[in-house]
């Protein structure tokens, strides 16, 4: 259940950003989670909603955007269908994963500044 430790990192990051900008409140955070980032979006949301109590994120709902994983050949650009062998049938090159599909990113923090 590493979702809780991810949420802890997220809240710490938001707290640091809020401090930097002397924000008085945080209203919303936007996070994107790739399909192959190793995070369960539902669990992550639950972990966030539990953990944010008593933190600067207490009144800041999280918008979670999910990015699907897409594999393609780095040579010819041909798409490799879900579940297929990750080698381009035409070029023999190892497939490349679409950007962000294995990342967990803090995209935006909406904060109230004086």
């Amino acid at each position: 259940m590493h979702e809780y430790s991810l949420v802890q990192s997220l809240v710490e990051r938001v707290e640091a950003l809020a401090r930097e900008r002397k924000a008085t409140a945080v209203h919303r955070v936007v996070v994107s989670v790739g399909e192959l980032a190793g995070v369960d979006p539902g669990l992550f949301q639950t972990a966030y909603d539990t953990f944010r109590e008593g933190t600067i994120c207490a009144a800041a709902p999280m918008e979670l955007r999910t990015l699907p994983a897409r594999w393609a050949c780095p040579g010819c650009g041909g798409a490799i269908a879900r579940g297929e062998v990750l080698t381009c049938p035409a070029c023999g090159l190892p497939a490349r994963l679409s950007a962000g599909a294995d990342e967990i990113l803090l995209e935006t923090v909406e904060m109230e500044v004086p």
Binding site: L10, R13, L105, E110, M111, V113
Partner: peptide, 9 residues
Amino acid sequence: VPVDVHEKI
């Protein structure tokens, strides 16, 4: 203010 971060958690 919306602050764009786009940083890995």
